[in-house]
């Protein structure tokens, strides 16, 4: 029964994360993939992937915040989804617990790597 309750919690969070990802990733894709059409948040013009544009966003508190939230939400949503797919194979309870722990560890590690870069990039010089 307790397992069932926490599963409902995990799932609800998965759906909320999906909606958060929808909003933020939409924004990310508009900036990165409609740069020719819209050109928003690309002050140096040209491609969104040009260094000057990338470092402008990386140095902004607004984008740093958005990236950290998107990292967390997309990792949670993606790994919960992967866990669902694996569980549907009809695994033993022990295997299920193992997968749950493994995806938490992998997810938190990747999140830490991403957060580290977001902080480290603040001291990288913009010129170049």
């Amino acid at each position: 029964m307790r397992d069932m309750k926490s599963e409902v919690g995990y799932w609800t969070f998965f759906i909320i994360a999906g909606i958060v990802v929808f909003v933020l990733l939409f924004f990310h894709m508009m900036i990165i993939h409609m740069d020719g059409l819209l050109g928003i948040f690309n002050p140096a013009g040209g491609s969104a992937l040009d260094w000057k544009n990338v470092i402008y966003r990386s140095h902004s508190a607004f984008f740093t915040t958005i990236y950290i939230i998107l990292l967390a939400a997309a990792l949670y949503h993606g790994f919960y989804g992967l866990r669902t797919i694996l569980f549907e194979l009809g695994l033993k309870k022990r295997t299920q617990s193992f997968i749950t722990i493994a995806v938490w560890i992998i997810g938190i590690t990747l999140f830490s790597v991403g957060v580290f870069a977001n902080i480290a990039v603040q001291t990288v010089k913009a010129a170049g």
Partner: peptide, 13 residues
């Protein structure tokens, strides 16, 4: 993408 995007900490070079 997390690893590739993180390359920005090494600067434009």
């Amino acid at each position: 993408h997390i690893f590739e995007g993180n390359l920005r900490i090494f600067g434009p070079e």
